[in-house]
Write a protein that binds this DNA or RNA. Structure first.
Lengths: 155, 155
DNA sequence: ACTATTTCTTAATCTAGGTTAATGCATAGG
DNA sequence: CCTATGCATTAACCTAGATTAAGAAATAGT
């Protein structure tokens, strides 16, 4: 386990890399994302201060997520065997987040997912470009623009 | 931790219940699902032999999933504190499944999700009604019918 | 400060999948 | 055995969001 400083734009993990590390974020902002066969990015999660990112595939398999730096960050880099999994309560919280995300993707419209997102992560909205929020929500930037316009006209 | 036998149709957990238990499936088939504000069910996961189901929200919060029995089953009922979380490698595997599911929901079409489903869970397809597979895939039974028809005409 | 590049928004069109409704099949219960 | 309820499929239509394209606004690089 060691503390590292990383710069905006830096890529910590490429898709296909052996996936032995996780990152605990002390300051800054990371994201993890997948890339589909058409080359389109889909943001899996944002990780601001206090969060932890890692690919959740087994340690022995190639990663299916790319991890990069959105804001200069200080990280604790942890080897997956030991350090991470010791903190079970954090693991369990991450599961809860994933569960919520699946439920939202299956049952909520783009508008509802956006509402939920800004309630749950009000600060992130300020810190990342719109197109990344769209990517996280599973819609296009154009559709997000429309969603925001509709929200304004209603409230 | 105790072993229990349950009958098809039995409900093990209601949405809103305090969520202190998990179930390890020795034989039979369970499912967990959410219900949206329109009353529509969305299957979160199937749990055949060897799998484990539980709601992933923290133990102290009301559950957001309902768990019921699709085929008569023998279960190990575990209290969430102790027993479950001891088996970390199983926890980690569940995370990998959730991750894959999110990526599929964001980046794959209904046809692709269906293909992936029958590859990953070939036996489940035989064991549950079509409408439940549709629900798991996040589409309507009508759309699943169309998907299957298109597959047949192509191959 | 000026240009180049990326980002955001709008509008027009297209499409995957939803909705509704009708029909044929099972399965369950009397 | 007959009816009732639920399941799967088909077809006609509808809608949320994708795609394409173009312009405006913001950012970054020199």
């Amino acid at each position: 386990m060691k503390r590292i400083k990383v710069k905006k734009g830096q890529i910590l993990q490429q898709i296909g890399d052996l996936n032995t590390k996780g990152y605990q974020v002390e300051s800054g902002l990371l994201r993890s994302y997948s890339i589909d066969e058409k080359g389109k990015e889909h943001i899996f999660m944002f990780a601001p201060e206090g969060w932890m990112v890692s690919d959740n595939v087994p340690r022995t398999e190639p990663s299916e997520l790319c991890i990069d730096v959105l804001e200069d960050a200080v990280l604790l880099q942890v080897e997956k065997n030991f350090d991470i999994e010791i903190n079970i309560s954090k693991l369990v919280k991450r599961m809860a987040v994933l569960q919520k995300r699946i439920i939202m993707l299956m049952s909520a419209s783009a508008i509802e997912r956006y509402e939920h997102f800004i309630e749950t992560y009000p600060d992130i909205v300020q810190r990342v470009p719109q197109r990344m929020i769209a990517s996280y929500l599973g819609i296009t930037p154009e559709a997000l623009s429309k969603v925001k316009r509709e929200r304004l006209s209603k409230k």
